[in-house]
């Protein structure tokens, strides 16, 4: 992993920058005359910044908007408002035609290795498809060799080009997906739960592959996951999302070592640690109830309905990420660092 200072001077401009990104999905009723009865506020004002060679982990539970964020960042969905810049170029409001060249720089790695590869295409066709879409990247005659090189790069035998996806295991399929994403030599990979469908013994292989590729190619990653242990392992910086908003953001060590937002604390304390000796010696914060509906989120701080620190102020004002001025950003009026992952007694 790269040292923070070295990178800051090498890449002054972020490769990926999101400012005030909002995505609302209208909820419609009626068959013939559709009327909008509300909005699902999937992503509601998110700021992110990612530099070359770095990894930003985005964590949160289902429904927090992290998958929608992934689609926004790669330009698959237009944001309702806000700006997304790739290498300084805005992709937010671009038409399908104008966005195509920019797409090369940001690619997506999917969660499910079974649905992300066309079962009727050979591995060679799958990994070579990017070259057929962007015909100017590699001349036709060299494409076969380029595909084999990509397969080799992700640790698959180049002889496998004529095979079909079903002949591979989940981990191998994920490698094929990564090879396809790398074909256009992107600067940023957005990985949406890339290892959560894999077995533990295979997860490590894929994570190590991603780290090696980052070192070799200087890639920047947005690593979206619900598994906080995996994110701790791979991310330099971490953003914690709750109901469409980033509630805490900072360097990985700071977030994991001393989370300041009550939600982050609850989330981290809930992750089981594979060490029976710690049983009963760790702080357990068990949250009550369920995540509220993103159609009608609570006023003020969105976490207040489940928060043990909630006060009157939380219902009236929306806390900003700069609240309290601690070591790192946390959107809570009563933010306070607290180590919840290690044994307390």
């Amino acid at each position: 992993m790269n040292a923070e200072t070295g990178q800051a001077s090498a890449a002054p401009e972020p490769v990926l920058q999101a400012t005030g990104v909002v995505k609302h999905f209208p909820v419609q009723r009626g068959v013939v005359f559709k009327r909008t009865v509300g909005n699902v506020r999937a992503v509601d004002g998110v700021d992110l910044e990612l530099h070359a060679g770095r990894t930003l982990g985005v964590v949160g539970e289902s429904g927090c908007g992290k998958s929608t964020l992934a689609k926004l960042l790669v330009g698959l969905e237009p944001p309702t408002s806000g700006s997304i810049k790739v290498l300084g170029q805005e992709i937010g409001g671009l038409s399908a035609r104008r966005i195509r060249p920019v797409r090369r720089d940001v690619q997506l790695v999917f969660q499910d290795p079974y649905t992300s590869l066309n079962p009727r295409m050979t591995v060679g066709d799958i990994v070579g498809e990017p070259f057929e879409i962007h015909t100017d990247v590699v001349p036709r005659r060299e494409r076969g060799a380029a595909v084999k090189e990509l397969l080799d790069m992700v640790g698959l035998s180049p002889d496998h080009v004529n095979r079909y996806p079903h002949q591979f295991s989940g981990g191998q399929r994920q490698r094929i997906g990564i090879a396809r994403a790398l074909a256009l030599r992107p600067r940023v990979l957005v990985c949406d739960e890339p290892v959560s469908a894999l077995d533990v013994s295979i997860q490590g292989q894929v994570i190590n592959l991603l780290e090696r590729l980052q070192d070799e190619l200087g890639l920047a990653y947005v690593f979206i996951a619900h598994d906080l242990s995996v994110v701790r392992h791979i991310a330099d910086e971490v953003a914690v999302m709750y109901l469409g908003k980033v509630v805490e953001r900072g360097a990985g060590a700071e977030i994991y070592g001393g989370p300041r937002h009550p939600y982050t604390q609850a989330l981290l304390s809930a992750v089981p640690v594979p060490d029976p000796a710690l049983r009963g010696h760790r702080e357990e914060i068990v949250l009550q109830g369920d995540v509220p509906s993103p159609i009608d989120p609570p006023s003020g701080c969105r976490f207040r309905t489940r928060c043990w620190k909630a006060a009157e102020r939380c219902a009236e004002e929306v806390p900003g990420l700069d609240e309290g001025g601690g070591a790192h950003e946390a959107a809570c009026f009563y933010a306070e660092g607290r180590d919840v992952t290690r044994a307390v007694k």
């Binding site: 392992h233 594979p274 992952t341």
Partner: peptide, 21 residues
Amino acid sequence: LRAIPRVDAVGRELEVIPGLP
């Protein structure tokens, strides 16, 4: 046991089990 990333330990190179089940 060595292959699982842990939430309470800082990033070390993950040990992997080579090959496939």
